[in-house]
Design a protein around this nucleic acid. Structure first.
Lengths: 325, 325
DNA sequence: GAAACTTCTGGGAGCGCTCCCAGAATCTGT
DNA sequence: ACAGATTCTGGGAGCGCTCCCAGAAGTTTC
């Protein structure tokens, strides 16, 4: 690699001091228009790119945030939800000269890395149960925002979809269709997203039979085995609310293999609007890209030390009616 | 954040010099067992984590590699293929104290960032057409490995699946089933992965009718419209080789909506083994996690300056027969 | 036992920036 | 016109490491 120009070369070419170049680069005030232009020209002429390492070292700022996927299995990576969030994060980061560092956390291993100044803040998603990671980070003063409500509660701000309301609407749709025996395939019970969608179903089902619950793990295979279990318990079920499209795919496979038609024999409603299926799923849409953007915006604001930020944000969902119910 | 200990504190506690601590930290030779143990103890006692920025600055090494997704749309992120690759990358990186920085490239904007020392190497995936990014990076001396054969050729090493052979096998399977009118939904013609799978289909179809080709863009919607187009051109087709499961999903929806049964009326073979579908897809499996690991291993080896590395690697594929064909 | 190695160790000069400080230039108000 | 406020500018001390160099300690050889 050819010798890269440093800030002093830019300064020399522009006829100003290093300090002034630094000010221009960082958009600091108190720079004359003349100096600013000269610096900008010099930067372009030399194709100068500031050295991030030096910047971080001198500026006590990492210019990077971490996206922590708090799940050893890496399951989330395969989830379209995650992909959408990531797209949103990226979109929001554009223009912020902040790098995105991706980390998958094996419990207990990323904490010290994160709290030792390598990143300016962290986005933590897919939190299970009472993972102490959030409080660890928060107690160490690292700005953190959780993607999805942390089950443990605590002072960390979070962004989440309105899972409860979405689930209520989905279930009401099944009821309004005249379905009598409505089951649900719920998400993991150690995640708020799983519990909230289940609560929504329960709420909408009040006064009805609510024992037809099976749990999945947000994978197609999990959805399939939950469906199998439900069918064995109640062969006559005529509807199922599946707490994630990705599980619905597995459920649809089982229904199809069993010879049950969707929606004629069994109506199916999913959640996420993330997967094309046969037949096309009636599902609860959430805008995952917006989710990611909101998450990032919130974290950056926190890092900047802005005041009066909302502690948490709940994003709306909407029912999309297609063929499956 | 409480004041973090520096290397000199470790040195003081261990009763040695900064230099020795540095040697221990970097596994350099010429350190007595006694000194090494003392340093290790001190590190643990102080919960010391080296400052990456200072390391990079002084060591002329970034300790990070970039994963560049060369696609403005962000489409790849939604592809399970990408998720698998990322998991592999991560697995291979474990223990290498190297960070993964994720970048989505708008043509022309990441080159200068990458070549200015912020990362030690780059993994570039989802390259379209004759994107000059690869040669730009390579010419600047940055170690690069491409995920998927670059269409433009060139000296950059790549890792790819054996798309051609996989497509041949998939098509031969359809032929052996007795299908007479075999169509294909191909991937984008500006990507090697699209062309190679199409070539495989053509090869296996030699001596038969090869005009039933429609192109998709590796999205379900693309697969759906390609399927629609094929059906309008040849309503009597009895098989289709779809160059990606994610497109097959769209195709299945169209077939289902048209009232055609799979596999009875139309047999379908996919590629990737990445998606559960109704009916379960017969498809060509590629081990994407291995793909990611190989990619990363190759890049790290390149960065270390190892000799005698294979210029490129082709990973095997295998046909998985399920219900759809 | 001295010479000739080899292994180990500490000192200290940067790496390329940011940011504090003090001084120069320019702008107010009366 | 002149003091006082305000905007601009340059100098230089670090940030926390790595790595080079020279010297101390330990080993081998004849």
């Amino acid at each position: 690699m050819t010798q890269r120009p440093g800030i002093d070369e830019v300064a020399r070419l522009a006829g100003v001091s290093k300090s002034t170049v630094s000010r221009v680069l960082n958009g600091a005030p108190h720079v004359s228009a003349r100096a600013r232009d000269a610096v900008r020209r010099a930067v372009i002429q030399l194709d100068y790119t500031p050295n991030q390492a030096a910047r971080s070292l001198a500026g006590h700022r990492a210019n990077a945030i971490a996206l922590v996927v708090s799940e050893p299995s890496g399951r989330v990576l395969a989830d379209p939800f995650f992909a959408g969030v990531m797209r949103g994060v990226h979109a929001e980061l554009a223009g912020h000269r902040t790098q995105l560092v991706l980390m998958m956390s094996q419990p207990g291993d990323v904490g010290s890395y994160l709290t030792s100044g390598h990143v300016d803040g962290a986005l933590v998603i897919s939190l299970h149960g009472h993972d102490p990671l959030l409080s660890l980070l928060h107690d160490n003063g690292l700005p953190v925002v959780a993607g999805g409500r942390p089950l443990a509660g605590g002072p960390v701000p979070y962004v989440d979809s309105d899972n409860f309301t979405g689930a209520v609407e989905a279930t009401q749709h099944l009821i309004s269709l005249g379905c009598k025996r409505i089951a649900t395939i719920a998400g993991p019970s150690d995640m708020a997203v799983g519990l909230d969608r289940l609560s929504g179903w329960r709420r909408a089902m009040s006064g009805r039979r609510t024992d037809l619950v099976a749990y999945g793990d947000f994978t197609p295979a999990g959805g399939a085995s939950a469906m199998t279990s439900l069918l064995s318990r109640e062969p006559e079920l005529d509807a199922v609310f599946v707490a994630a499209d990705i599980m619905a795919l597995g459920a649809l496979q089982v229904l199809h293999a069993t010879g049950l038609r969707v929606p004629d024999d069994v109506a199916v409603v999913g959640f996420d609007d993330s997967m094309p299926a046969v037949p096309p799923l009636t599902t609860v849409r959430q805008d995952v890209e917006r989710f990611g953007r909101m998450l990032t915006w919130r974290l950056l604001a926190e890092i900047e030390g802005e005041e009066g930020l909302p502690p948490s944000v709940l994003l709306p969902t909407s029912l999309v009616v297609r063929t499956s119910a």
